[in-house]
């Protein structure tokens, strides 16, 4: 076991092997992803530098206008609003999710599979339906108000729906599993001896957390942030269903530009802005994750 000279390299790590089977596999995979993943993004990038036109949607007239327009007060306000909402949502998910993930990762192993499955089910469940569920919970004649009225805590239905809090609540509810799963994956890998060692060396509970646990689970925190922050800005139906028209976010903006205002270049520019955000966060993640943790997202499935 552990022979240094047995594990490295070898036929399967890729000695020259040009079987036709390999060629077919690689060609199919790359063609598909090139056509349906890379070319579309390239098209978005190109479109974002073109000019909108009422008759043919887009005309080939290069311009930077779509980007400069982003700094208009109206757009800027939506951008800041989105950032604010996404940040609050991410922080709330982290605050709720971290202790939760920590607890289930440290629970008895025979319970752990079930506890994890219970998080995984909402993870894979339609977030639209779950948004609808929140809507049913908080609307004026919803269950929450009915219960509160019935027990006499309030005398008039609370106007929760169609407010900023409703949108925030919806985002947290929808995206919490996306924070918990990567955190869980990271915390579970944490060697419990490490915590004991830290405490043994005289570090208090809080110190252990801050100096040992947080830094070691940083890849999980960043992965969770990645999976919560970006959707929070772009899930257009959450503001539509829970915020009415009042809370316009980047997602709604893109949707508008594409499907109502017919200003595709503008929509593409906003989409590129989000892509740049994402790129920055991914780089941060890759820098933080040790090379072996790079497949951290694998643990989601």
């Amino acid at each position: 076991m552990g022979e240094l000279d047995s594990g490295v390299g070898g036929y399967f790590a890729g000695m020259k092997n040009n079987s036709s089977f390999k060629k077919i596999c690689v060609t199919v995979v790359w063609s598909w992803l090139f056509i349906f993943a890379m070319v579309p993004v390239l098209l978005t990038l190109i479109t974002s530098f073109l000019t909108a036109d009422s008759s043919s949607l887009v005309v080939f007239k290069p311009t930077l206008q779509n980007y400069t327009q982003l700094f208009n007060s109206a757009y800027l306000k939506i951008l800041l609003q989105s950032l604010y909402l996404a940040t609050s949502c991410t922080l709330l998910c982290l605050i709720i999710g971290y202790p939760f993930a920590f607890t289930i990762a440290r629970s008895k192993s025979r319970h752990r599979a079930l506890l994890l499955l219970l998080v995984m089910i909402p993870f894979w469940t339609s977030s639209l339906i779950r948004t609808y569920a929140i809507m049913a919970l908080i609307k004026a004649k919803g269950i929450l108000n009915t219960v509160l009225l019935a027990i006499g805590l309030i005398h008039h239905p609370l106007p929760i729906l169609y407010s900023y809090s409703a949108v925030l609540l919806g985002c947290v509810y929808d995206l919490l599993p996306f924070m918990i799963l990567p955190l869980y994956g990271n915390i579970e890998k944490l060697n419990p001896d490490l915590l004991e060692a830290a405490q043994d060396l005289g570090a208090g509970k809080i110190r252990t957390m801050v100096k040992v646990v947080f830094p070691l689970t940083m890849p999980g925190i960043i992965a969770g942030t990645l999976l919560v922050f970006l959707p929070a800005m772009t899930m257009f139906y959450i503001p539509v269903l829970l915020g009415g028209a009042k809370n316009l976010l980047l997602g709604n903006l893109i949707e508008n530009q594409f499907l109502s205002a017919n200003n595709w270049p503008m929509g593409a520019a906003i989409s590129m802005l989000i892509t740049v955000f994402m790129g920055a966060m991914i780089l941060l993640y890759w820098r933080n994750a040790q090379s072996k943790d790079k497949q951290n997202l694998q643990e989601l499935v």
Partner: peptide, 14 residues
């Protein structure tokens, strides 16, 4: 290097 010799003979390494 003993396993390496074996894998070289077998052709699993070059």
């Amino acid at each position: 290097g003993k396993t390496t010799i074996l894998r070289l003979i077998s052709g699993l390494e070059k």
